[in-house]
Design a binder for these strands. Structure first.
Lengths: 186, 186
DNA sequence: CCTTAAAAGTACTAAACTGGTACTGTATAG
DNA sequence: CTATACAGTACCAGTTTAGTACTTTTAAGG
């Protein structure tokens, strides 16, 4: 379907939110609250991100997760690599070598590899810091500025999943702008 | 998973093969034979490609499929658009508008839209003609030339699917180089 | 210590999607 | 009028995904 999985989507969401206050320690519960996601799901994602050393974890009371590098140095490609188990590539045969008996004679694979390269570069060029900040600094060239200061609407008590919540019309990749009063670990 | 579906993969495969002799009419059975795919599957793909006017069909005896435009003008993005039913976009919320209640305040979506743009451009820049021919003319910059003339190995009687064929190690996107003696409609 | 908070690990289940097939209908050539 | 080839629909089975539950480990603080 040429989509990233929801878990990966959540991952960028979570990291982007953490990138808003990169020095702070964030608990899974706090992030779940702030983003309107289920705690078990958020935990799962963070665990995986930890295994791939994008975040470091502190166990025990007052524990939580911390970005393990400056958010400008965590690219969307990194998140994908961490959260999708299959290796990167738009087709199976171009994602890993040796899957196909005809690899030698095949000219198509060559081209998929090149396409993969371009796509990957696009994904590597965007950091999770870019995702929260207005995108002027991103590698996409000059951007329109956001239309104005945040009007500060209500806190958006949306949840994406769970049986009772499907109608709430909030998608994985959409998060509220970080708010000063949200309850993180201080 | 950030993969195109197998059907889409087959689609590029089929069109690339047809691009080898763009003026000729190709029957579904002939294509299936040549590519080592199941006839019902090839039919299904071609039907869909027809509905999206990438190929035109001729019914009845001696019927078959014909590219409806020069192969240089059919991009990989076109194939994806035809064969994947969901609209193009790496995340749900960036693929179509109005899916998310927070679309207004969300800064993430903006960035996904931009990433989508870059990816799409990469896909639009490659035609199915590029996929068969050596890639010197493709938008990927100067390429290494293929190592030499095709050694012309055996006809590769591989099939990708069907219960009895999983061991044959041929992947969707891998096709034999077009051969002079393959049995198309003449 | 003992309690509490929080992450780690494992395993399970329900739902969605994908891929492949079967069957029936329609058009065309000879 | 028969054989061939595309068109459409519907179905099924295997796989993947996403979400949840439960148990264990670690650390802080009274």
């Amino acid at each position: 379907m040429l989509r990233i999985s929801k878990l990966t989507d959540y991952g960028t969401l979570i990291l982007a939110h953490m990138a808003g206050s990169p020095e702070r320690m964030h608990s899974a519960a706090g992030l779940a609250e702030a983003l309107g996601l289920g705690l078990p799901t958020v935990s799962k994602v963070l665990k995986t991100l930890g295994r791939h050393t994008l975040v470091t974890s502190q166990r025990g009371a007052h524990g939580g997760y911390l970005l393990s590098r400056p958010p400008t140095q965590i690219s969307v490609a990194d998140v994908i690599d961490a959260l999708e188990d299959q290796p990167f590539g738009l087709t199976e045969c171009s994602a890993s070598a040796g899957v196909c008996g005809m690899e030698g004679e095949c000219r198509i694979r060559d081209n998929w590899l090149r396409i993969n390269g371009v796509v990957r570069q696009a994904l590597q060029g965007v950091s999770v810091a870019d995702m929260v900040h207005p995108t002027s600094g991103s590698p996409f060239g000059p951007q329109r500025r956001p239309s104005g200061p945040d009007p500060g609407g209500e806190p958006a008590a949306h949840r994406l999943h769970g049986p009772a919540t499907l109608g709430s019309r909030m998608t994985a990749a959409c998060i509220p702008a970080p708010r000063a009063d949200d309850q993180e670990i201080r």
